[in-house]
Structures are given as C-alpha cells and as structure tokens.
Design a protein around this nucleic acid. Structure first.
Lengths: 217, 217, 217, 217
DNA sequence: TATGAATGAGGATTCATTCAT
DNA sequence: TATGAATGAATCCTCATTCAT
C-alpha cells in the first residue's frame, strides 16, 4: 500500500522477471545445443548458476521450458512481421520484402527454427501442450495472413496473375522452410551438395515464384 | 562342402533375413507411432515376438535400428525415382511427372517422412552415424539429380527459361518438403487453417513454379 | 516499563497466540486430510494465508507441528475425562459413564484418533520426539487412572468381582480403541462387514465387559 | 516341449520364485524396520544384493512391495486360523483356543501387525490399491467368522448367554488388537506403565469377556 | 517479525545393453 | 543362435528448511 512496500514489490517483480529471463536464456542455449531429449534440467540450472529446484519455481516442467522457447521464437517472428504491416501499400516488391523479412528473421534466429518448425516427432509432440501448439500455429497463420494480403494487393493492382493468394502465401512460406530445413538438416549440405549459399538459393526460389506470379504480356 | 550343409546354410541365411525383416517391420511401426525417444526396445521385441536380446544380434543399438528405417525410406524413394530415368525424353511435362512421383512416394510412405526429413533435432542427430546421414543425403542428391536433368532438358528444348537447373531441382524438392511438413506438423492444419487439401496445395505450388520457369512469349 | 509498552507487548502476545492457533488449525486440517507423509508445509501455509517462513517462526519442523496436533488431541481427551473426577462417587454405572465419555470424546474428535493412536509406524515414530510421546502416554495413563479408580470403587462396593482394576481399565480402553480402529481403518467396514453401527458395537462391548465384571449371585 | 526345455523352464520358474522371495524377505525387513516412508528401494535392493532395476522386474512399485507384505501377513493369519476349523466341536474352551491362536499368531508375526492393522494413515491408504485392502479385509472377516462360529456353538450348547455372536467375535478381535496396539505403540508401555506383560493382559481380557459370556446360574 | 525465493539432498522409476544359459 | 533376467546409470521432480530483505 505505502510507497515503500510498493517499491519493494516492484523490485521483486523485476528480479523475478530477470530470473525468469536468465533461466530461459540458459534453457535456450541448452535446448539449442542438445535438443529436448539430451538436455537436462541440471544443464540448465548449471548454466544459469541456480539450484535445480529454483528452475521449478519458474517453470512447471522440462516441457514447459521447451514450449516457452517455442513461444519465444514465434513471438520474435511476429514482431519481425509487424513491420510489414506498416509498409506503404501499392508499391511493387512488397512480397519480396516479406520474403526478405522472413529470411532476416531466420538469419537472426537460426536456432529457433529447429524448435519451432522441426519438432514434429510424435515424442516431442506428445510432450507439447496442445494449447502451445495452437498458439504457435496461430502466430504462423497471422504472419502468413500478412503475406497473403500483400499478394492479394499485387493481384488487385494487376502486378500478379489471379491466383489463390492464400495458397501462394502458404507456398512461399513452405518453400522457405523447406530450403532452410534442407540446409539446417546437415551443415555439409550447403557447400558440398547444394553448391550454393542458402541465401542465394532462397532468392532463386523467390525469383522463380515471383516470375510465376507475374502477369504475362 | 556337401550339398546338405549348403542347403542348411542357405536356409539359415533365409531365416536370418526374415528375422531381420521382422525386426525392422516392428521397429518401423513402433518408431512411426512413438518417435525415437518414446519407443523402447521392449516395444519392438514384443511386437515381433522375439526376445530383447535377439534384437541385439541383428542390430547394434536403438540408433542403428532407427537409422536403418531412415535408409529404408531412402531406398524406397530411390526406387520411386528410378522410373523417371526411363521416361521417354523430350516430352513436356516431365518435371510435372517427377513432381507427381514425389507426391506419389509421399502418399505411399507418409510415415517415413518424419524420420527421413524431420529428424534434425540435435539429439537425434547426435545418435545418427555420420555414415548413414551421408548415405541418405546421397540418395536425395541422386533423386534431385534426376529432376535437374529433366529441368535441364526443358531448358535445352526451350520450354523453360535459362535458369540454374540444379537450384530449381532443389527448390522444387524443398517446396514439396516444406508443404508436406506444414501439413504433417499438425493434423488440424489442413482443414482448419490451410483450407485446402495438401495435394491441391502441392499442385498449386507446382503450377506456380512451372509458370515461373516457362519462357515468356 | 510504562503502561504503553506493556499494552503493546500484551497485544503482541495475543497476536502471536492467535497466529500460533491459526497455524495449528491449518495443520490439523491438512494432517487430518492427507496424513503426515502427503501433507506439505506449503499446504499448511496456504491454508492459513501465511508465508512458509512464518510457520518456522512458530514451529521448529513439520514433525513439531504434527506432534503438537497429537498433544492437542490428548489435551482434549484429558479435559473430557476431568468431568468424571467430579462425579458423585458410589453410584453404580460410573464405569459406564467413563466409557460413554470416551465414546463422546471420539465422536467429537474423530480425526484426532489416527494421529493419536495410529501413529505407530516406525517412520512416524522416528520423527516424533520421545518427550512428546511420553507426554501423550502420561495423559492416557492419567485418564486410565480415572477409570481404574471407578472400577476399584465398584469392587469395593461389591458391585464387581475382585479383579485387577488397572488391568480392567487398560482392557476397556484398548477394546474401545480396537473397535474404533477397525471401523476407522475402512469406511466400508461398518456397513458391509460388521453389519452394525460402531456405537452399537461399542455398547455391546461395554455390556460384555460389565457383565464379566459383575459379581455372580 | 521336450523334457530338456521343460526342465529348463521349471528351473527358471524356481529361480524366479526364489528371487521373488528374496526380494520380499528384504522388503519385509526394511519395511519392518523403517516403515513405508523411510524405506527406500535402494535399501531393499542392497539387502538382497540385487540391482535396483531388478526389483522392478518383480514388483511394479514400492507400494506393490508394501502391499505384498500386507497380503503375506494376512495369509499367515489365515493359516493360523485354519487349524481352528478342525478342532473337535462341542468342547468348552474353544473360544479360548481361538483367542490363543491369535495370540500365537501375533507372537510369531509381531512385525506384521503394524503393516496389517496400523496402516490407516490416509497417506498410506492413498497408496494402497483398494483391491489389496479388500482382500485383507476379507481374510480378516474369514477369521472372525471362525470365531463367531465358535461363540455360536457355545451359545447353542448353553455355555454362553444368548448374545450376538458376530458382535462378540468382532469385540474379541478388536480387544486383542487394541491391547497389542497399546503395547506396540510404545515399547516402554509394557513395563513402565501397564505394569504387566502383554500376554498376561491379553489373558485378563479373555477372562473378562468369557466371564461376561457365561450363563449365570 | 514476516516474507517467500532459493536451496539441494533425496528417491522412484526407466530402459538400453550385457551375458550366462 | 535365442533367450530374458539382471544391471545400474541416468534424470525428473519434490519439499523441508534456510536466509536475505
């Protein structure tokens, strides 16, 4: 009630938030490095110099931690795409911007990918609460919605052929994911096999799809 | 030495092969249903009515079993693509045929997908022998090589623009994987979100890319 | 020193007592409901809306709390029996009165029974300070002493045979406990098996023993 | 099928039984000494020189072990009482024989008592499968049924008053339990307080009840 | 005095792998 | 070769207790 107490509470909340963040940071590193199965709570506790029990004051379980990282990644993605909403409409090249935004997101958050999009093993799924999966999917849908709108606008302005803009958004999305996944799946893929930098491959892909979208003269 | 012994040996080898197949079949079912982490050797032994110890006479470890399934899937894929080699060259629509071959493969081997392409978690990777990963990748490359040749031929016959045929093969491949993955990742995706059957989405994607490949008049 | 301070101290002491009682009340409910093993200090702290640390300002340990409840029960029992001391001596039926007093106590304090008489598991014992066990036993002895006196009086007035009055007191006591325990041990016992209300069974028992005590004509 | 195999199987079964017994023996000692809460699977494994995991090949859980001991005790009790069924009917003193049988059982199986009759804490109950509790109760009922029959016979032969023989059986049973419990609850009880050996006390109790049963002349 | 965050020892259970028969 | 009993390392989570504020 009085200001002293209020301050105290505030500081405590700040500390709690900081602690939570520290744990999440540790968990991120450990999960990124080892995956769900091989990561241990001890690893995480050690890395943030807290007692094992403390982790459980902030997160209910190993799964809870894992899905928190998933949600974190999705939130980052959402933020990256928010920017696109504020682009001046009507210009050509907006789809390309979206594409580049996604690439940018990937570049900045490589490690999240495995956790966000590649966790489809039944064992991992079994441990992920439906609710979290749904929230992740919704975020993805939201981002794809933005892409769809951009495509739709291009169609309306006669830059693009009359295609199903929602499908195109999905396809663009999936293509990027597929390419990233191929590269991520094996570090040697890039140089030895694909013979091309991932980014160059992604731009190739963009070019191909955009070309396919264009109205023919 | 004598024919009797030979026969005996032959029969024994046959039995061994059958045993090995039975174990693989059991492992397939179990891994498909539960994923690597949640599957147990007991599950597999029970399902093929063999003793746990017997499994270890045929496979070195749980990982060995898992990667054998991976290799199995790859082999199936290779066989599916072999057909494409024998198509009469020069006709248009060959790329589409390859695309459809891949879709066909997926339709017949849905469950292999997770194991073949989605096993990129570091924990699973850590347990997969490099050698197996390489073999899988080679098979993939081989298949993509076929697609590349088809694209290349299209370019030479002036059906397609002069693009990097290897990149296009990779992109086609990745797009399909990306789309399948999106659908596989969540069964509710299809109806609730994408609003479209996976196959229709795949064909959309093919259309888009092919359109992007075509020479403009 | 001055009256102001004194009042302050008094109020503080009152508050402390109230706090202590609140904690005991919470502990009672929790121990009654869950037993020692499954009860947690958190449960207790939550139920009395105090911080976990506060509990430790009033009680040394979980065991301390538990044994305090034991002592509490014994104190209630003692109070119930105090009444018997003031009964007009010499009348017949005094033993029956004692018996009924005990039943009355049980009826009012059912939940204490488990804690008072059934805590003989070595694990619970190991955590109970000798001193508390002794105090409990002394209280029990005191109450049995009253019963013994009543029996003794009956003998002297030639209502009863010349038996060991102390043994009889013990036996009466044990019989009641045994019967109550049988019923308490399983709620289904009463209806399904014993085919009789506990109280009726207790009175049967009293009747049998009293009959055994009576001088034969 | 062939004799060799059969023998093998037989021996294996024998070994398994022996192992199971060894584990039970170890568990008995540990549970007797420490109670459920303080006993650990490690204790038990150590005591029978087996690996912890081996325990779980024979028993599903710590609870399963505990209740197996309970059942064991009940089985011993049943066997002790079986003898009574074969007593020549019609003689006086049969009830006394039953009483003595129970005392004999107790003397031989002291440690089972805590586990059989004193496990009424809600926490212990919560971990005991209903089914086991029921089976235990049934065995108890069966034994009491024998006592009831003996009482009934006494009534029919006019040795005893016309009382509810089932209630008397229950009361006899409960009295013994109550007395044993009092002594068991604290080893110092016997000498310091009751001033009498438990067995003497039990016989006192028997005397009292029998006297109460007798027909008065 | 009251708080409640932090601690970390402790224990049940699982399961891949081995090995005696 | 086939068996399946035995192993024991590995790990998640709980909770009584402490202590800085």
């Amino acid at each position: 009630m009085n200001t002293g107490q209020k301050r105290k509470t505030e500081r405590r909340q700040k500390e709690q938030l900081a602690r939570r963040r520290a744990i999440l940071a540790a968990a991120r590193e450990v999960f990124f490095a080892k995956g769900f199965m091989d990561a241990t709570i001890d690893d995480i506790a050690d890395r943030c110099s807290l007692a094992k029990g403390t982790i459980y004051l902030y997160f209910r379980s190993k799964e809870d931690l894992y899905t928190s990282i998933m949600a974190e990644g999705m939130e980052r993605l959402r933020r990256e795409f928010e920017v696109l909403k504020n682009l001046p409409p009507g210009e050509p090249g907006l789809v390309e911007s979206a594409f580049r935004a996604y690439i940018g997101f990937y570049r900045k958050n490589r490690k999240y990918f495995r956790i966000m999009f590649l966790s489809s093993q039944p064992d991992v799924r079994a441990r992920t609460p439906q609710e979290v999966l749904l929230r992740c999917m919704e975020t993805g849908m939201e981002c794809m919605g933005i892409v769809r709108d951009l495509v739709q606008e291009g169609i309306e302005r006669a830059y693009y052929r009359k295609v199903d803009s929602w499908a195109v958004a999905n396809i663009l999305w999936a293509s990027i994911n597929g390419i990233i996944m191929a590269y991520e799946n094996d570090p040697i893929y890039r140089d030895e096999f694909a013979g091309m930098e991932m980014e160059k491959m992604l731009l190739h892909s963009l070019d191909l799809v955009l070309e396919g979208l264009k109205v023919k003269k």
